[in-house]
Design a protein around this nucleic acid. Structure first.
Lengths: 129, 129
DNA sequence: CAAACTGTATTAAGTGCTTAATACACGAAA
DNA sequence: TTTCGTGTATTAAGCACTTAATACAGTTTG
């Protein structure tokens, strides 16, 4: 498990984001154990408290749960897991639309650019095989 | 001139972003005067030093220029003005694509959502007339 | 000339968020 | 029992940004 951090957003926020992306991609099974705070901190080279903060928020959001001193686990509520993906998608779409809107760019124009760039990236991935 | 600030990004960054959006929309003429630091600070209810910092960076980026003690002006270099728009568009597209990529969502699926949401927003704008 | 406006610079304080350093209670396992 | 690994809580330190209070040089305006 590795995460590339940017210097702009708080680390704990990026950690949460990372877990949400993993969830969205179906990487976790419902109820699956996740690394302990200290272990995650070691893996990501961050402070245990930062990991703790990320886990704490994820717990409050219902993404993970913790019973006693047992290792924390991904929620068993599949509806929650499913909604994570949808939320991330909606988030991306809304952000994109508001950005475009604030520059007054015709949608058709950027959609062409999106397709073009996407195909270009796919091409690169293909070449690197 | 009003700007709605969020609590996440530094104010001076948001001010710069605001000017770039105005430039991208063709709101400014090349060489056009812009408000003084103190006046902008008054309008936006921010500290003059924060306005100064925003202007300073915009000057370093070539977006505005200042001669002597004259009021600062938008650059006369139309190529720069044009590139601002393109940069903002590319920025939005790249961010969108990377977001989508990190969730493993098929492009066609989100493009449908983008169009749908965009049309819905246009509809709302139409109704509010 | 004097006043008021430009831009610019320096220094300091305050504020909020992030990170860090510890400590504690609990349970499982050697 | 002792050790180790859980989660949790508290407190302090660090850092970036914002704000603040001035100061200075120059230009325009009354």
């Amino acid at each position: 498990m590795t995460v590339k951090f940017n210097n702009r957003d708080p680390v704990y926020v990026q950690v949460i984001r990372h877990f949400k992306e993993q969830i969205a991609k179906g990487y976790f099974e419902p109820g699956q154990e996740i690394p302990s705070r200290r272990e995650l901190a070691n893996q990501l080279k961050i402070n245990p408290n930062t990991a703790q903060r990320a886990y704490k928020e994820m717990g409050e959001q219902g993404l993970i749960f913790t019973e006693g001193n047992m290792p924390s686990c991904i929620t068993k509520d599949e509806a929650v897991l499913k909604s994570v993906r949808e939320e991330l998608i909606i988030e991306a779409v809304d952000l994109f639309l508001s950005s475009i809107k604030s520059i007054d760019v015709p949608l058709s124009e950027v959609l062409e650019l999106v397709k073009k760039k996407h195909d270009a990236e796919s091409g690169e991935a293909e070449e690197s095989k």
